[in-house]
């Protein structure tokens, strides 16, 4: 059970593959058009159930509860050794 007021992410299919814009390329046309947004859960709910959240702008949005307290994991990545020797003098 996820408590009301928890910061969560919801997911919603906006357009099924059949409903997508006519100009999209074939690979994109095979997959649905999906929206995700974070907000405060409005009522106690189970993961993967249909819920409503209140976003940072105050909108009330419906969708499937997919993440509890979503966070950022982006980083500087693994070391790319090819960069280390650039600009040390030798190659200029």
């Amino acid at each position: 059970m996820v408590k009301a007021g928890t910061w969560v992410e919801i997911e919603k299919i906006l357009l099924t593959p059949e409903q997508r814009a006519p100009q999209v390329p074939d690979d994109t046309k095979k997959v649905p058009y999906v929206m995700r947004v974070s907000g405060f859960l409005q009522k106690d709910a189970e993961l993967n159930s249909e819920v409503t959240v209140k976003t940072l702008s105050g909108r009330i949005v419906e969708g499937t509860l997919v993440l509890i307290r979503p966070h950022y994991e982006h980083s500087f990545g693994d070391t790319v050794e090819e960069l280390l020797t650039i600009g040390l003098g030798g190659e200029l």
Binding site: L15, A21, Q23, V24, T28, R36, V37, S38, L56
Partner: peptide
């Protein structure tokens, strides 16, 4: 900065 971010998949939609 306090903004709501709507995250979409790839497409001109």
């Amino acid at each position: 900065f306090g903004a709501e971010v709507i995250r979409l998949t790839v497409g001109p939609e």
